[in-house]
Design a protein around this nucleic acid. Structure first.
Lengths: 169, 169
DNA sequence: TTGATTGTTCATTTTGTATTGAACAATCAG
DNA sequence: CTGATTGTTCAATACAAAATGAACAATCAA
């Protein structure tokens, strides 16, 4: 059972701590909040699925953080509900998705694509503004820059699916 | 000349504003500070190189921000000193690097590689800890997870150079 | 229905990081 | 040398984003 008498604050053992810290660092690079790394990390190193309350106790985070963190991880496709334990249990348990392809795919879909798309529309607007400039020299220069941005966008758009494919194995 | 009477607060015109905002948004996705996007954006849309003081006035940011921002952009290979204007000028002017390949290369070198490397060494440490676990079942599970992390690292290491090459054009 | 359990929402608080700005080089002219 | 110009550093501050936690659903049992 839980070694803590009050049921909360069931601390991580050193190995779990290492793994959680590894993921905390990992998600920071991706610009995601620390709690996301903590939650995914603990799920990753746990042999059986965990429920929200487990995360709250083991990681010593609030229910709010755990709830929001799980929601984001679900939207990223990084965790899924475990279907195995249906013996009269009401709460839902989660397990991690461990295929890199899936993780990268979710990140691209949720975090990269939307920005790329909004970027493209901003550039379209920019192109119009640049075209309305009077001075021909200046207009030419701006046209070149806008064209450069469009190049960047095309390259990025081409590269993402390849990235995803390459990370599949 | 400068339309502002006191020499400071030389505001951006609407097109410059659009471009700067575009890059501010862009660098946020990359987890870089806003000022980096502002500085690079203004350089990107300026026909001639700008000095530190120009950035301070036009963007209305502090000298400290401009100095640190330029340093980071230099380390990323995203700006370079303009050599053209050596007519008795003491201050240094900067121009943007506009080749996507170079920008991505710098970002990978400065921001991604270091994390990948530290990640690899963390995993090595993790593997030792996992191997010291008594319970054979548990040790086997941990070994699988560690192996998974090593897979991820290998995939990432393989993909970065390809990414760089593909973005070259 | 009431009470117990599980999970969500969101206004407030906390925390981490970027920005500021004043003090400090460094370099040059006269 | 002094004074002017350009740029850097870093402790203090401001700000944005994350975490909290209490109030609020939602679901089920008895």
């Amino acid at each position: 059972m839980n070694p803590a008498s009050d049921g909360s604050r069931d601390e991580l053992d050193p190995l779990e701590r290492q793994v959680v810290d590894f993921f905390v660092d990992g998600v920071r690079v991706l610009g995601l909040p620390r709690s996301i790394g903590e939650i995914y990390g603990l799920l990753f190193i746990s042999r059986s699925p965990l429920a929200l309350d487990d995360l709250v106790c083991r990681l010593d985070i609030s229910k709010g953080s755990a709830s929001q963190g799980l929601r984001m991880l679900k939207s990223l496709g990084a965790v899924r509900e475990a279907n195995g334990n249906g013996n009269g249990e009401r709460r839902t348990y989660f397990e991690p998705a461990v295929e890199l392809k899936r993780l990268v795919g979710g990140f691209i879909r949720e975090q990269i694509r939307p920005h790329l798309d909004s970027g493209k529309s901003r550039i379209r607007h920019l192109a119009e503004t640049a075209n309305a400039v009077d001075d021909p020299e200046q207009r030419k220069f701006l046209g070149e820059r806008v064209e450069r941005l469009e190049q960047w966008m095309r390259s990025s758009g081409r590269v993402l699916p390849i990235l995803q494919k390459l990370l599949g194995q």
